[in-house]
Lab assay of single mutants.
Amino acid sequence: MGTYKLILNGKTLKGETTTEAVDAATAEKVFKQYANDNGVDGEWTYDDATKTFTVTE
Protein backbone atom coordinates (compact mmCIF):
# COMPACT_ATOMS: atom_id res chain seq x y z
CA MET A 1 0.00 0.00 0.00
CA GLY A 2 1.05 3.53 -0.64
CA THR A 3 -0.32 7.04 -0.44
CA TYR A 4 -1.08 8.70 -3.77
CA LYS A 5 -1.98 12.35 -4.28
CA LEU A 6 -4.25 14.03 -6.80
CA ILE A 7 -3.90 17.69 -7.71
CA LEU A 8 -7.01 19.14 -9.35
CA ASN A 9 -6.52 22.13 -11.64
CA GLY A 10 -10.08 22.41 -12.87
CA LYS A 11 -11.79 25.46 -14.31
CA THR A 12 -14.18 25.61 -11.35
CA LEU A 13 -12.57 23.23 -8.86
CA LYS A 14 -9.01 23.35 -7.58
CA GLY A 15 -7.55 21.35 -4.74
CA GLU A 16 -5.83 18.19 -3.59
CA THR A 17 -6.86 14.82 -2.22
CA THR A 18 -5.07 11.61 -1.31
CA THR A 19 -5.89 7.92 -1.34
CA GLU A 20 -4.29 4.74 -0.08
CA ALA A 21 -3.88 2.17 -2.86
CA VAL A 22 -1.95 -0.98 -3.67
CA ASP A 23 -0.53 0.53 -6.87
CA ALA A 24 -0.68 3.54 -9.19
CA ALA A 25 -3.24 1.93 -11.51
CA THR A 26 -5.66 1.44 -8.63
CA ALA A 27 -5.11 5.00 -7.39
CA GLU A 28 -5.69 6.31 -10.92
CA LYS A 29 -9.09 4.58 -11.10
CA VAL A 30 -10.10 6.11 -7.77
CA PHE A 31 -8.91 9.58 -8.78
CA LYS A 32 -10.53 9.48 -12.22
CA GLN A 33 -13.84 8.57 -10.60
CA TYR A 34 -13.37 11.39 -8.06
CA ALA A 35 -12.62 13.90 -10.82
CA ASN A 36 -15.57 12.69 -12.88
CA ASP A 37 -17.90 12.95 -9.87
CA ASN A 38 -16.75 16.55 -9.43
CA GLY A 39 -17.09 17.48 -13.10
CA VAL A 40 -13.36 17.80 -13.79
CA ASP A 41 -12.21 16.46 -17.16
CA GLY A 42 -8.81 17.31 -18.55
CA GLU A 43 -5.26 16.20 -19.28
CA TRP A 44 -3.78 13.71 -16.81
CA THR A 45 -0.14 13.38 -15.81
CA TYR A 46 1.57 11.16 -13.23
CA ASP A 47 4.87 11.62 -11.43
CA ASP A 48 6.09 8.25 -10.15
CA ALA A 49 8.78 9.80 -7.94
CA THR A 50 6.19 11.68 -5.85
CA LYS A 51 3.21 9.37 -6.51
CA THR A 52 1.26 12.42 -7.68
CA PHE A 53 -1.42 12.60 -10.33
CA THR A 54 -2.40 15.96 -11.80
CA VAL A 55 -5.48 16.72 -13.89
CA THR A 56 -5.63 20.06 -15.69
CA GLU A 57 -8.65 21.41 -17.55
Rank of each mutant, 00 (worst) to 15 (best):
N9M: 14
D47H: 11
A49C: 05
N36L: 14
T18S: 15
K51W: 07
T18G: 04
I7A: 04
E16Y: 08
E16H: 09
V30F: 13
N36P: 02
N36H: 13
E16R: 05
Y34R: 03
T45F: 11
G39F: 15
D41E: 08
A25R: 13
G39L: 13
T45R: 14
L6A: 03
K5F: 05
T56R: 07
D41T: 07
E43V: 12
A24E: 10
K29R: 13
W44G: 00
Y34I: 09
G2R: 12
D47I: 07
D23N: 12
A27C: 02
T18V: 07
D23S: 12
Q33H: 08
T17Q: 15
E16G: 04
E57H: 06
A35T: 08
G10Y: 11
A27D: 00
K51I: 02
D48S: 09
D41P: 04
I7V: 07
Y46F: 10
V22P: 12
D47K: 04
G42N: 02
F53Y: 06
N38V: 08
V30H: 14
V22M: 09
D47L: 04
F53Q: 00
L6P: 00
T12P: 04
E16F: 09
D47S: 15
A21H: 03
L6M: 05
K32V: 08
K14G: 08
K11E: 12
E16T: 08
V40L: 11
N36R: 12
D23I: 02
T12S: 10
G39D: 11
N36V: 14
K14H: 06
A27W: 00
V55F: 08
T17D: 04
A24K: 10
N9I: 13
G2F: 12
T54G: 03
G39W: 08
T12R: 05
F31M: 03
V40W: 13
T56F: 10
K32G: 03
V30C: 05
T18I: 08
W44S: 01
L8Q: 02
T19G: 03
Y4D: 01
K51R: 14
A21N: 03
A24H: 10
A35C: 05
D48K: 09
E28K: 09
M1I: 07
L6R: 00
Y34L: 07
T26V: 08
Y4T: 00
A21Y: 03
N36C: 04
Y34A: 03
L8K: 01
K11D: 14
W44H: 01
V30W: 14
W44T: 01
A49M: 14
A21W: 02
K11S: 14
A49Y: 10
I7P: 00
F31R: 00
N38R: 15
E16A: 08
G42M: 03
E43C: 05
A27G: 02
V22A: 12
T26M: 08
V55Q: 01
M1H: 08
D23W: 03
T17M: 12
T18W: 07
K11T: 15
A49F: 07
D23A: 04
Y34N: 02
E57A: 05
M1N: 11
A24D: 05
T56P: 01
G42Y: 03
T19K: 04
Y46P: 00
T17W: 14
L8E: 02
G42F: 03
D47V: 07
K51S: 10
G15C: 07
T19I: 13
T18F: 13
V22Q: 15
K5A: 05
K5R: 15
V22R: 14
G42S: 02
T3D: 06
N38L: 06
D23E: 05
K14Y: 08
I7T: 10
L6F: 07
T12H: 15
G15F: 10
A25Q: 13
A35G: 03
T50W: 05
E43H: 08
D23H: 05
A27Y: 00
T3S: 12
L8S: 03
F31N: 00
G10K: 04
G10N: 04
G42A: 03
T56I: 09
G2L: 11
W44C: 02
A25D: 11
V55C: 05
T18R: 11
D48E: 14
G10S: 10
T19C: 05
K32I: 09
D37Q: 13
D41A: 09
W44N: 00
Y46T: 01
L8G: 02
D47P: 00
E20W: 09
F31W: 02
M1S: 12
M1Q: 11
V22F: 15
A25N: 10
E20T: 11
I7W: 05
F53A: 00
T52V: 12
E16W: 14
A27N: 00
G39K: 14
L6T: 01
T52I: 06
Y46C: 01
T17I: 13
N9V: 07
A35M: 06
G42E: 01
G15N: 12
E16V: 07
D37P: 01
T45S: 11
K14F: 08
T19A: 08
G10W: 07
T12D: 15
F53C: 01
E16S: 10
E57S: 05
T56N: 08
E20G: 05
A24M: 11
N36K: 11
V55E: 01
F31V: 02
E28F: 12
E28T: 04
Q33F: 05
K11L: 14
I7Q: 05
L8A: 04
T45D: 11
K14C: 05
K5Y: 09
Y34Q: 03
V22L: 15
A27K: 00
A24S: 12
Y4G: 00
K32D: 02
L6E: 00
A25F: 10
E20K: 09
V30I: 14
E16P: 03
N38D: 03
E57G: 05
N9D: 12
K51A: 08
T19Q: 07
T54P: 00
T12G: 12
K32R: 13
D23P: 01
A21S: 08
E28S: 08
A25P: 14
T17N: 06
T19M: 13
T3F: 09
L8C: 06
A27I: 01
G42T: 02
M1C: 05
V40G: 02
T54H: 06
D47W: 04
K32W: 07
D47C: 05
D48F: 12
T19P: 01
A21G: 04
T12M: 12
K29L: 12
K51M: 09
Y34G: 01
T54M: 07
F53M: 02
F53R: 00
A49P: 09
M1L: 08
V40K: 02
E20M: 14
Y46A: 01
K14A: 12
A21V: 05
G10A: 13
T45I: 06
G10P: 03
T3G: 06
Q33K: 09
K11C: 06
F31A: 01
E57P: 03
A21K: 03
D23R: 03
Y46L: 02
K14D: 06
K11P: 12
E16Q: 06
A35S: 06
T54S: 06
E28M: 15
K29T: 08
L6S: 00
T18Y: 12
T12W: 15
E43R: 12
V55G: 01
Q33C: 05
Y34C: 03
G39T: 04
T45P: 00
E28H: 12
K29E: 11
F53N: 00
E43A: 10
L13R: 03
Y4K: 00
D48A: 14
T56E: 09
E16I: 05
T26L: 06
D47E: 09
L8F: 13
T45L: 10
T12C: 05
D47R: 04
K32H: 10
Y34P: 00
T3K: 13
N9Y: 11
Y34S: 02
T50L: 07
G15E: 12
G39Q: 13
T50H: 08
Y46S: 01
L8Y: 13
N38Q: 10
T12L: 15
K14M: 15
T19F: 15
N9H: 07
T17F: 14
T54V: 09
K14V: 14
W44F: 04
V40Q: 04
T56W: 08
Y46V: 02
F53K: 00
G42L: 03
Q33R: 09
N36Y: 09
T50I: 07
